[in-house]
Design a protein around this nucleic acid. Structure first.
Lengths: 199, 199, 199, 199
DNA sequence: TATGAATGAGATTTCATTCAT
DNA sequence: CATGAATGAAATCTCATTCAT
């Protein structure tokens, strides 16, 4: 039960961090913001997190994992790695566009959640094994996907991007990953159709 | 003449900042490092820059502009936007790989130099007008190029990337920009050949 | 003529200092306030005054001398030291009450103008020689007069004092200087009457 | 208990400030002097005082309160307001004359300790109620007492004042407050006699 | 374990004064 | 002489982090 208490407290702080970001924006948040939002003493904070960075990371991981799980749920039944990558990227970008606070938070922290990284790499490898993708190495391919999406998210923080932005980006990504132009369009069309049905 | 003096002083501070970064690495450098390196009083520093961040930006802009000029020199005679974009990206990534201090410095600051942005957008537009590229908008295409390269540079700071990394990335980029796979390989081959000759 | 120019410039700076005090109040005035009010360069200022303190002193002396001269004019024909001291103090306090900028300025600078000090001491000595005053030493008596008036001026800066304040103070001063209570009242009455006539 | 700690810390800083002043004199002491003397971090200082001025005020208040308490002890058994005022003023001036550091410190800060002000006003009111004093208002009377003593203290900082200075001043003050010349001399004589006995 | 005072490194600001042009 | 950029000492502020209670 001591263990449970620990987890409740940790969750409380993370929860508070989320609110702080949603309310005060991505800049400035200082430790005082977090602890006062969580209603916790300074010292208590440091019992749960070594430093602010770690809180941010933990929160980002939480956020990314949550989204990843939601996306996986959405993709239930989708087995083809190419379909999965397309759908996943699309949903990720849409989340970013529809939830600026989430976007701000995610873009500000460097590392990605392990779950996201693994899922992404698995699909990249799968797509290559299936002969659809063609790239030098999964890590290099990952840089294309992660870097482009991250840059897009950065720009969302500054200017309003068109509704079609997500699809436009995913098209570039699939082509960049070596998917033939014909297949790219087919995959995209199917993926969009499926998403519309499920909404 | 008072104006000239101002500019000399600003240049002197930026120059010193470059040295500081080259010597002490991208982390930690504190304002005292900069002012003592520049041989300038604290008050003088704040007469030219509002804060450290601003100095970093100014310095990064300088660095990026300098590299851009060097790359333009290297590309003298190259007129085709696709060739230019391929060569430029390649040289940029190679610089990053061969000069970790430069890479660390550049990757740490958000905005890109205006010169770089303009050159990039011009080539993207040119390549599209020529019918080589195909993408939704130059800005979206820019996100692909800038985001991927930036992500690659980030990863360079953490792990050693293979010699072929730069070429691998550029191949993905060209394909992502909608260049046909055949042309992509041709452009890359020509571009590499030309670079080898000129070295 | 070079000498004349010098004096004109000095006067200009002092003049500006007066305005600064009148406009911005007694706190804060910084050298920048003075030089920008005078439309003079930093360096120029230091050619005329060694430091801010010296400017303040010069200005105070000017102000006090001016007032002293005005008071002397008002007292033309008054020869009795006791009358002079009473009238002078009264007029001084009235000036302070009617001109808050002047008051603020004067109260902030320690030393008194030599002219004021000499006039005061002369009247104190005169009144004692005439057998009206009685105190240990003119310097000690001076402390009573100067200290009380200065304290009153300080309080004027903070709170509004009653119309009768000046007379109340002068009555205390005359008694404190050893003037008999009867004479004090007579002197005060005469002095007030004379002032009313002259206005 | 946390409250107690706070008070101890504040006292510690004020205590240190006293030492600094005693050792280095009233001019120049810089924030670093205070914090190093108190063995306290810069941040801590600003947690207790907004700026140096505030520390000076707090310290002066402490000093004035301490002296006031000592004077009250000395006056134990003295109930007559006139006696109290005479004795108190005398002791205050003697303290100033015998302890230049204290004098310098006290004279440099504008406001008086609340305890001092209240005690003074009470005695002024008491003396008036008893028919001994006669003045327009206690506040005006206060200006006479405070202003004169302060001016005397200022002058002590510059020149050496005679041994009789304190008594001379108090005589002027009592007369100025409207005490009859006869009573003034009687009160002074008694007060001096009493003090000599108690030493 | 929870608390919040204390720490201290550092950034930023302010300003009187100096000095090259 | 006039100018205003440069200086540098000191004040003030901000925060992440430590630590005694």
């Amino acid at each position: 039960m001591a263990r449970e208490r620990r987890e409740r407290m940790e969750a409380r702080i993370v929860e508070a961090a989320l609110n702080v970001f949603a309310e005060r924006g991505p800049d400035a948040p200082v430790i005082d913001d977090f602890i006062s939002a969580a209603g916790v003493a300074r010292g208590t904070f440091y019992r749960y997190f070594q430093n602010t960075e770690q809180l941010l990371e933990a929160t980002t991981m939480r956020l990314q994992d949550d989204l990843m799980v939601a996306i996986e749920a959405e993709m239930l039944g989708l087995d083809d790695p190419v379909d999965r990558l397309a759908t996943g990227s699309l949903l990720w970008l849409r989340k970013a566009q529809s939830d600026p606070a989430w976007c701000a938070f995610t873009v500000r922290v460097k590392p990605q959640s392990a779950l996201v990284e693994q899922t992404l790499l698995a699909d990249l490898r799968g797509g290559k094994r299936a002969g659809d993708f063609s790239f030098a190495s999964p890590q290099t391919a990952r840089d294309l996907v992660v870097g482009t999406i991250r840059e897009g998210m950065s720009r969302m923080m500054v200017e309003r991007l068109p509704r079609t932005y997500a699809v436009d980006v995913v098209r570039m990504l699939l082509r960049g990953l070596g998917l033939s132009f014909v297949k790219t369009d087919a995959v995209l069309a199917a993926c969009i159709a499926k998403l519309q049905r499920s909404t």
